[in-house]
Design a protein around this nucleic acid. Structure first.
Lengths: 157, 157
DNA sequence: CTGATATCAGGTAAACTGATATTG
DNA sequence: CCAATATCAGTTTACCTGATATCA
C-alpha cells in the first residue's frame, strides 16, 4: 500500500509551500498582498479609514484639487468606484466637492482642513504598518524591494 | 481664482502616481498583484485552468496525495474554498478523490495521469507569463525580487 | 457628432467567517 | 467531551464592464 500522507509539513501558515510553488512570483505576490491588505485594512479601520481614502487624500495634498476623473487617473481607482470613495470622504467632511463653474460636467474635489489633519494621522499609521510589514528587511533591502516593485509597475505591458 | 487643475499628468496608467503614494509599498504591491493576477488568470483561462488549479496540482506532484485539509495547509487555499477547487479538478479528471479507509472523515486526493500531463502544460504557460511579468528585470534582479518576497512571506507576524 | 464626465447597476474572483454533520 | 474533517452558506472587498444623462 502506498504512503498516503507525504511528510506532513507543520502548519505554519504560508511558509510550508512546496518549492515549485515558491518559485512562482505571482503566487508569492498574491499571498504577500493578501497579508499586506489585511494589515493595512485593519490598521486603517482603527482610525475609521480605508486605503482608498489615503490614496485620494494624498493625491489631493500632492497635486491639489481636481475633477473626479483626474483623481481616478492619479490614484488608479476606477472612475466607477471613485463616486463611492468620495461619498465616504465627503460624509466625513474630509473633502469638499463642488461643481466646476467653468465645466459643468465636472466636480472639483478639494481636501478640507479636517482632511489635511486626518491625512497626517494616516501618514503615521501607515508608516507604522509598513514598518511591521517590512520588518524582516534592512533599510537597504526595503529600498531595493521598492525599487524593483516600481520598475515592474512602470513597465507598461 | 485658484488654479483648479494642478499640472495635469498624462494618463499613462499607473505610473503617474504621486511620489507620496509611490513610497507606499503596500500600494505598489496591490497594483502589481492586480496586474499579475489579471495576466495569470487570462493566460490560464486559455487552457481552461485557474491559478488554484496549479497550486493544488503542483502541491500534489511535489508532496504526493493528501487529505483536503492537508492540501489546504500546503497551498494556502482556505479549507472552505478547497471543495470547489477540487470539484473543478475532479470534473476535469485531473485528480482522483476517494474516501480514506483508515480515517473516514477524510478524502484522499491524488493527481491523475491526465492531471500530471495537464500540470506540465501549466508549467510552460506559467513560465511564459512570468517572463512577461518580470520582463523589466534582469535574471539577477528577478532572483533578488523573489528572495525578498520570500523573506517577507516567511516572517510570521 | 465626438468625446469626456459623473453616476449607477451590475459581474467576477479572492479572502474570509461561521455553521453543521461526521468521525477520531 | 474535545478536535479534526469535509461541506455549505454567506460576507466583504477589489477589480472590471458596461450603460446612461449631461455637457464641452
Amino acid at each position: 500500500m502506498p504512503q498516503v500522507e507525504a511528510t506532513d509539513v507543520p502548519d505554519d501558515g504560508g511558509s510550508a509551500t512546496p518549492e515549485g510553488l515558491r518559485r512562482r512570483v505571482s503566487r508569492q505576490l498574491s499571498q504577500l498582498t493578501a497579508r499586506s491588505d489585511r494589515l493595512i485594512n485593519q490598521g486603517l479601520a482603527q482610525v475609521d479609514a480605508r486605503k482608498w481614502h489615503y490614496a485620494v487624500l494624498a493625491s489631493l495634498r500632492e497635486y491639489g484639487p481636481g475633477s473626479q476623473a483626474t483623481l481616478s487617473r492619479r490614484t488608479g481607482i476606477y472612475r466607477s468606484d471613485m463616486v463611492g470613495v468620495l461619498n465616504e470622504l465627503a460624509e466625513r467632511e474630509l473633502v469638499d466637492r463642488a461643481p466646476d463653474p467653468d465645466d459643468r460636467r465636472r466636480n472639483i474635489v478639494r481636501i478640507s482642513v479636517r482632511g489635511d489633519r486626518h491625512l497626517r494621522v494616516l501618514d503615521t499609521v501607515l508608516d507604522d504598518l509598513h514598518d511591521r510589514l517590512l520588518a524582516p528587511l534592512s533599510a537597504a533591502e526595503r529600498d531595493e524591494f521598492l525599487r524593483l516593485l516600481t520598475r515592474l509597475l512602470d513597465h507598461r505591458p
